[in-house]
Simulated assay, not measured.
Amino acid sequence: MDEERIAALRALPKVELHLHLEGAAPPAFIRGLGQEKSVRLDGVFAEDGSYAYTDFNHFLTIYEAATSVLRSPDDYARLTLAVLEKSAESGVIYSETFLSPDFCGGGDLGAWREYLHAMREASEAAERTMGITLRGIVTCVRHFGPERAKRAALCAAETAGDWLVGFGMAGDENRGSQKDFAYSFDMAREAGLRLTSHAGEWRGPREISDALDDLRVERIGHGVRAIEDLALVDKLVENGIVLEVCPGSNVTLGVYPRLSAHPIERLRERGVKVTVATDDPPFFHTTMADEYERLAKTFGWDEEVFAQIARTSAEAAFCDEDTRAALLKRLG
Rank of each mutant, 00 (worst) to 15 (best):
R40S: 14
E124Q: 15
M1N: 10
E304P: 01
A226L: 03
T97G: 10
I132K: 06
L328D: 01
Y51F: 14
V224L: 14
G200H: 01
Y256C: 04
L70M: 11
M130D: 00
A153R: 07
K37H: 05
W112M: 12
D162E: 13
G136R: 04
V138W: 02
E238P: 03
G131W: 13
R10D: 08
G49N: 13
E244Q: 13
R194Y: 04
F181Y: 15
R142S: 01
L327M: 15
L327W: 02
E85L: 12
F318P: 02
E207P: 01
E315L: 15
R324A: 09
A66E: 00
A11N: 15
A277V: 06
R258Y: 00
A191R: 02
E3F: 05
Q178N: 12
I309D: 04
R216L: 08
A88Q: 14
S313P: 02
L195F: 06
C140M: 10
A307G: 13
V305R: 15
V165H: 05
A111I: 00
D42V: 09
R330C: 03
R40I: 08
G32E: 04
R135E: 02
R219W: 11
A126R: 04
G254P: 06
D180C: 12
K329S: 12
D279N: 13
L134R: 12
A289Q: 06
A314L: 07
P282N: 07
N250S: 08
A149F: 01
A152H: 08
N174I: 04
P27V: 08
D162R: 15
E47Y: 02
R71M: 01
G300F: 06
L109D: 09
T129F: 06
A77Q: 00
S95F: 03
L17T: 02
E127C: 01
R71W: 00
A25H: 07
L295W: 03
E16S: 11
A156Q: 11
S72E: 02
D213E: 11
S68V: 02
G32H: 05
C140F: 00
W112A: 14
E293D: 04
A149L: 07
D213F: 03
N57F: 12
N250E: 01
W163Y: 14
V237D: 00
L19C: 11
P282Q: 10
P27G: 06
A77F: 03
L327P: 04
D2P: 13
S90T: 09
L12H: 08
F167P: 00
D55P: 10
G254E: 03
T159A: 09
E124Y: 05
P282H: 11
D180E: 15
L331R: 10
R31P: 02
C104W: 00
L164P: 01
G300V: 09
R31I: 03
K297D: 07
F185M: 08
A261Q: 07
E3T: 15
Y183R: 15
R31H: 09
T287F: 02
A170S: 11
L19S: 05
E315M: 13
